[in-house]
Amino acid sequence: MDVIFLGTGAGLPSKERNVSSIALRMLQEMQSIWLFDCGEATQHQILHTPIKPRKIDKIFITHLHGDHIYGLPGMLSSRSFQSGETPVTIFGPKGLKEFIETSLRVSGTTLTYPLVVEEVSEGLLFENELFQVTAKKLAHGIDSFGYRVTEKKRPGELQPAKLKAAGIEPGPVYRQIKEKEQITLADGRIIFRNDFIGPEKPGRTITILGDTRYLPELKTFAQGSDLLIHEATFKGDDEALAFDYFHSTTRQAARLAKAAAVDKLVMTHISSRYQADMLEQLLEEAREIFPNTALAQDFYQEEIPQK
């Protein structure tokens, strides 16, 4: 499982940064890619990565400002021309459904796959056998949400020594034991999986926050995340400016990461006012508070290894 930052700028594209979009690749886990936001030219950014649009089956929109949604109509349309046939579900604030339906209708676009738009509120949005996604309301002038992706615990490793000690030799039966809670052996014995498997493995958690003022109470939502992705539109001493524009600073992102005891912080949504010679300062401001911090550039990639 890894994250690719397709766009890391704030407000409008620049020569150095495109506008917001993040791809979460879960190809080994379930052959799936999820997008978080889809700013203008996201599909152009995808062309510079290994991402195949037909693998994108869920899109989570944090809020409806243009730098987070203007790439949606084009990306959805192009997916039809790139062998996309499987359903896509898009989650986002109220008004998203109208935006998508109007864009597709006015442009005469017909999709080759089913499209479902779910307008969200706080709480559990999605759950399957491997993951669950919850949403949290932020503070950005218009409705804006953060998303917490939690991988469920995974079964522990099979214990071959215990199996051999019980007279069960290696073979297809080992796989059956791992996959089923109990099986009946050829000799009539009933074998319970829990007797021959190690402790469950903890899942991974990624918290992705949309545009927001600094909210200390978000530490509960982000608590213990393996990766926290937080906007850092302004430099550390511009807290008043950040508040006025409903955004956060580098230091505020770092304070939240520290309070939430996350493993790593990646800052994104960087204002174009900060040129290349300022980036090291932005990074150091955050690292003074939370050392394990990175500042994302377009196409920056972060792997979240299994525990």
Results as ranks from 00 to 15, higher is better:
184 T>C: 05
185 L>V: 02
187 D>M: 07
190 I>E: 04
191 I>R: 01
191 I>T: 02
195 D>E: 15
198 G>Q: 06
198 G>V: 08
200 E>F: 12
201 K>Y: 01
205 T>S: 08
205 T>V: 09
209 L>P: 15
215 L>F: 00
215 L>E: 10
216 P>G: 02
217 E>C: 00
221 F>A: 12
222 A>D: 13
224 G>A: 05
226 D>M: 04
228 L>V: 02
229 I>H: 11
229 I>M: 12
230 H>G: 11
230 H>K: 11
230 H>A: 15
234 F>C: 03
235 K>N: 09
237 D>P: 06
238 D>A: 13
238 D>Q: 08
239 E>F: 01
240 A>D: 12
240 A>N: 09
243 F>L: 11
246 F>E: 08
248 S>G: 03
253 A>C: 02
257 A>L: 11
259 A>I: 05
259 A>F: 01
265 L>V: 06
266 V>G: 09
269 H>K: 11
271 S>W: 06
274 Y>L: 12
278 M>I: 08
278 M>R: 10
280 E>V: 07
280 E>G: 06
283 L>R: 06
283 L>D: 02
284 E>L: 13
284 E>K: 14
287 R>H: 04
290 F>G: 00
292 N>E: 04
292 N>G: 04
294 A>I: 04
297 Q>C: 11
299 F>T: 11
300 Y>E: 13
300 Y>P: 01
301 Q>G: 14
301 Q>W: 09
